[in-house]
């Protein structure tokens, strides 16, 4: 019994040097442009004073991968998405480029999404993409987290890189935002955990050998070393829910859209880093 305690204490000792305090000593630059990775939390956050990009929680080696677009493996998929953008698909004989002159026309979009549209519906970038595909191009919908979709929303998101996240939470967005906030603090699953248990109460601490972040989504879609591909926001939510032994909501569901709005609003003030690199 005593030995077990000592070994546990040892494990604690071994883990201690790995812990790095989030942020201040490292500076993110991408292609030599400086990025803000920590900033005062938006006013609506009650329990957090400073918000940190997920980049600040990663090791030097993982951080370095995001600092140059050539070293960043996500750009393989961005390149593929540029080809897709220019390729005709569907019965209308159109490509993205037939209506949108270049991906650059989407500058700013990522920083304000998700948003409530004219018909009072909360909309996300994957939905905008699929609407174009089915309504204008006469093409098949893409899967929410499929490779084509992840690449395309990566390409669209990249156009806003370096812009400050500014998601509207008032007016018509209020009720969806409240719903998202409720989901964020709602304990679920066999482990009976909420998003906040890890990403608000314990960011900066270790979960097994991993460094918990604040769960900010300003770098999504993100290239993960784990699966060597671009990962979507809802895909990541799903993974988190599985980890706490909960039945995940569906990608694109009203629940995940509301949660996306709320989580995005928690990063108001940070910069878009799409496509980021995480572990």
């Amino acid at each position: 019994m005593k030995l077990i305690k000592i070994i546990l204490a040892m494990a604690g000792l071994v883990a201690t040097p790995i812990v790095t305090i989030a942020g201040e000593d490292s500076q993110l630059t991408i292609n030599e442009e400086p990025f803000v990775t920590s900033v005062a939390a938006p006013a609506h956050l009650e329990n957090v004073d400073t918000i940190y990009s997920g980049w600040t929680f990663r090791t030097d080696e993982t951080q370095a991968l995001q600092m140059d677009d050539f070293d960043n493996p996500a750009f393989v998929f961005i390149d593929q998405a540029i080809d897709t953008f220019n390729a005709v698909d569907g019965s209308a004989g159109k490509a993205c480029v037939s209506c949108h002159e270049s991906p650059e026309v989407f500058k700013g979009l990522r920083a304000s999404m998700p948003r409530v549209n004219g018909s009072g519906e909360l909309e996300t970038i994957p939905e905008l993409v699929n609407n174009c595909r089915t309504e204008r191009m006469g093409a098949e919908k893409w899967k929410w987290s499929g490779g084509k979709m992840a690449g395309m929303i990566g390409l669209i998101g990249l156009q806003s890189r370096g812009m400050t996240v500014d998601v509207a939470i008032n007016g018509p967005a209020t009720s969806m935002w409240e719903k998202g906030k409720e989901l964020y603090y709602q304990r679920v699953g066999q482990l009976d955990m909420s998003c906040s248990n890890c990403h608000e109460d314990n960011y900066g601490n270790m979960i097994r050998a991993d460094h918990l972040s604040q769960g900010q989504i300003n770098g999504f879609p993100t290239y993960r070393l784990k699966n060597a591909k671009l990962n979507t926001i809802h895909g990541r939510f799903k993974g988190c829910m599985k980890n706490i032994r909960a039945t995940p909501f569906k990608e694109g569901s009203d629940e995940f859209k509301a949660l996306e709005l709320y989580v995005a609003s928690r990063s108001n003030g940070l910069m878009i880093e799409t496509p980021s690199v995480r572990n």
Binding site: F70, D71, P73, F75, V76, F77, Q80
Partner: peptide, 8 residues
Amino acid sequence: VTLKTLIS
């Protein structure tokens, strides 16, 4: 010169 290569 330093060269970098990446292939999907």
